[in-house]
Design a protein around this nucleic acid. Structure first.
Lengths: 235, 235
DNA sequence: ATTTTATGTAACAATTTTGTGACAAATCAA
DNA sequence: TTGATTTGTCACAAAATTGTTACATAAAAT
């Protein structure tokens, strides 16, 4: 089985029954997705607003707010291009399917479902969305870069960096754990201006680190004394 | 219930059995879709290349080329982002579903299917795609554009902008959050006159901003220093 | 322990990028 | 035609980025 890629997509599960939740989150984790859990509709909507979710698995039967209502609110709030919503339900009633899909759900799976099929539908959903976005994303560890949005997130929180730091991070992200010498980085990034001191790289690495540290304590940007720098999430 | 848009969506049916074909095309026509028919994979691929198809209904069992192969070829071709593909099959085998979805199908319906459910899935598929396509209204955040009426509203209040600013906003609205470089915008908007300074873009962005600001305080048009501009409603 | 070397980083000046008013040319409407 | 609107460019101001230096730390070598 081919693994989709190294990008972690963020999936929100809204499901009130613990055993179902466990089953889903275990399998999705095993496939390499990041998972958020919500036990009812309100919590689900809250998490949905706070995070940049790629795909939602939404149970139809929920305490308080119904799944259908949650679906409608989610689809109304965000740009629907960005998030795929799969309804998950015990009912097989055709009318329900039709209502769910017409309410904005992108897919519909009937319980009891096969885990393999569910995972295949999840992959398909993720694929649809990333095609719509333009699918230019790099990630490693807690860092997620969306190139055509020029956005970088660490721990799902956006950081703001200048163009050179962006390019620098991009080069590092394209080959995580690889050590780049200062002159290699100069060649790759300062393509126009060749008259630059190697120490300049240090300064920009510092600026990149500062930006990352402003939202997360981990130091992903490692110094390899005598050689250069690399991205590395090991201890 | 909102109608998706006034333009008819174009659906391609690839199905070798006449009775099935009849059933599908009759119902889809009744719903207001334009329908193209193909009786085997080759004809299907041909029509797919020639037309700007919004959605494909693809039978699994076909003479000559298998549906799976047709699916892969369609999804490989360039405009696949814009087209939703639903596999249609007599088999209920789980492995087949998984293979079909992993091969690029966006959805999967098992025969015998309910016509209502099929239509709902078709609507859902069209809706997913129509975000990218030329729907005659574009929305993002507080901005609402009605293309054929040439009207733009922010916070439900109309603003008045010139043709160029309109086009500019349209391009931005079609891919919210995506950052466009000045030269990309020049290519997309100043298609006739190539002899234009990139700084001209800045001026028009400024004019667009002024128009928006005249009715709303939010600044949706963001500058991404060193790269270009984008529409973005995040803080 | 001391020296040498490599790296981190604050601070500053130079450079680049962007925002915007002004204005003339071009276009359009009547 | 006239008058209004739209468009492209420029000039200058404002803002952000960038490269360098100088000094502080840290690691390695002696």
């Amino acid at each position: 089985m081919q693994r989709t890629s190294s990008n972690k997509s963020l999936i929100l599960i809204v499901e009130d029954e613990p055993s179902q939740m466990e089953l889903l989150s275990f399998n999705l984790n095993a496939e390499g997705y990041d998972v958020l859990k919500a036990e009812d509709g309100e919590e689900g909507l809250l998490l949905f607003k706070e995070h940049d979710i790629d795909l939602v698995l939404l149970d139809w039967m929920l305490p308080n707010i119904s799944g259908l209502e949650v679906c409608r609110q989610m689809k109304r709030s965000k740009n629907s291009k960005d998030c795929h919503l799969i309804m998950l339900t015990a009912r097989g009633e055709e009318e329900d399917k039709v209502r769910g899909l017409d309410m904005g759900a992108d897919d519909y799976i009937v319980k009891p479902y096969s885990v393999k099929e569910l995972l295949a539908r999840v992959r398909s959903g993720i694929r649809i969305r990333s095609a719509a976005k333009g699918a230019d994303t790099l990630n490693y560890g807690k860092i997620k870069m969306e190139i055509n949005r020029r956005s970088v997130k660490v721990d799902n929180k956006a950081i703001s960096i200048g163009p050179l730091e962006f390019k620098l991070l991009q080069v590092l992200l394209e080959s995580p754990k690889r050590v780049f010498s200062r002159s290699q980085l100069l060649e790759k990034i300062w393509t126009e201006n060749l008259e630059v001191e190697t120490r300049t790289v240090d300064v920009h690495i510092g600026r990149l680190r500062k930006a990352i540290k402003s939202v997360s304590d981990d130091n992903l940007v490692k110094t390899v004394r005598g050689f250069g720098y690399s991205l590395d999430d090991s201890t």
